[in-house]
Design a binder for these strands. Sequence first.
DNA 1: CGTCTGCTTGATTCCCGTCAACACCCGTGG
DNA 2: CCACGGGTGTTGACGGGAATCAAGCAGACG
Lengths: 277, 277
Amino acid sequence: MEGYESCIVRHFSYYYELSEDDKALLCTLEQSPMTVEAGSTLWKEGDDAKEFCTLKKGWAYSYRFLENGSRQLVELYLPGDIIGLREFAFTQRLAGVEMVEDGEVCFFPHQHLLDLFRRSFVLTSILFAIASRQQVLITERLVNLARRNARQKLAHFLLEVSQRLLQTQRGSLSGSFHMPLSQELFADLLGLSPVHVSRTFSALHEAGLVHRERHHVTLLDLPALKREADFDERYLIDNMRPLFTAYPVSATRPADSAVETPPTPFWPGGRGLIAKR
Amino acid sequence: MEGYESCIVRHFSYYYELSEDDKALLCTLEQSPMTVEAGSTLWKEGDDAKEFCTLKKGWAYSYRFLENGSRQLVELYLPGDIIGLREFAFTQRLAGVEMVEDGEVCFFPHQHLLDLFRRSFVLTSILFAIASRQQVLITERLVNLARRNARQKLAHFLLEVSQRLLQTQRGSLSGSFHMPLSQELFADLLGLSPVHVSRTFSALHEAGLVHRERHHVTLLDLPALKREADFDERYLIDNMRPLFTAYPVSATRPADSAVETPPTPFWPGGRGLIAKR
DNA sequence: CGTCTGCTTGATTCCCGTCAACACCCGTGG
DNA sequence: CCACGGGTGTTGACGGGAATCAAGCAGACG
């Protein structure tokens, strides 16, 4: 750990400043990294769900198969992400997870998360924030899949990845990045056929909006793309500092005096918000 | 509260037995219920996000508007659900919430959740389980929207609601229930046009799979419907007792001795799961 | 009894899936 | 050096599922 700041620490720090204790606690989740090859399976639908996994290097995705043989990608994981949070309350995996490219992952059992709940109030809160952010991400993708046409879907997805990389990968240039996905993966991700992904990419290229060669993508005209995709990055850029600053916490587990603090008084009504449609 | 068991307590109890202390703590979230009319707005996209809200009575839904004027429902809330968890890490609402029918809700500030993190390990864990379950629900809906045709979408949705009601509403008969949604809401929920919802309902009716009149739905042939929709209720029926029994907890906040328990030792490797595609 | 809202049904259009042929890249082996 | 083959991306022709537009219908309610 000397000199090297782990992905997960960086990820958590994005939400709130961590004490050294918290950092250490967090790092216990990242023991024993193991390398995994491109295309390897971390787990399959139906496997026992007893662990989470942090992604240190490489991209990964979770997916579901359907009866008709098609496949839908559920989530795309970038370095620093936690994989498998979804199955915390479940005994079986509900989706498989595969690596897009060679990478490094660290498994840790569900119980470690419970330990974390006991030991660190700040980490608990951040973890909850991460879970809620993940939900927001999925929600946005849901809207994308349900209501937009192929062009918008693709544009939106490219913008999402670009923004996420910007936040987690220091120094990546906005709008130009490595994109190791095959068009088949794009298809499974966006609910399209591979053929149509190709066509749509061409269309965006002809419109001068994106440039792509091999596995590298450049977004040429971000404002136009955002307009096209109805993209609003606010859903990706929030954090929880405002919450904590409104209600300060000691960075470590609160002393008993703090614990005895009564909950903030019942919220005083007078909403005025409730309005008939 | 005397004699009456609140929805939220019942909801949490589904995951794990609650101590009296926990029940009391939980009930502080449900102070000051207020009645809300059908069609009223709890909040709109872009509003400040400082509170959650528990739904005591009536159905509600969250939604997003798109640039082109169409609308996508994101989540459907039934009595006992917590509304707004998604925005825990955000300062603004990312989706609006409206009531389907007359009901009762209880607002409580985000900070109350932080108090809960400090005070009850069990409630924290359950809350996390609820959040993860919500994510699973959205994920399933995402797959539904992305990959299935209108018939399957509708069938799947009806099955989902049926199953959820079965779990939270005691004594509701499986496969026959009150369904207060207009076809326009179905459309916004399933990513279809209202016209096509009507056609699809007719098709399912003709096939002898569902019966519907006014706002009451009966699922006539559950096995056939499940086959049709590729529906697997496992994603809805798990809970977290296995996790806790594998790693018992005192029901109240752990004594210091418990806190000092070292985290379970680093997970011992030997996966054997990692396989090349 | 008239009006309003929500549901149904028909005709037409269009986006995207499917099928199929072909180009391309790259590693292998002769 | 070229031939070969598999995986991946491109392009065209065709068809189908669902959107859209529009008109008719049925309750609900004043």
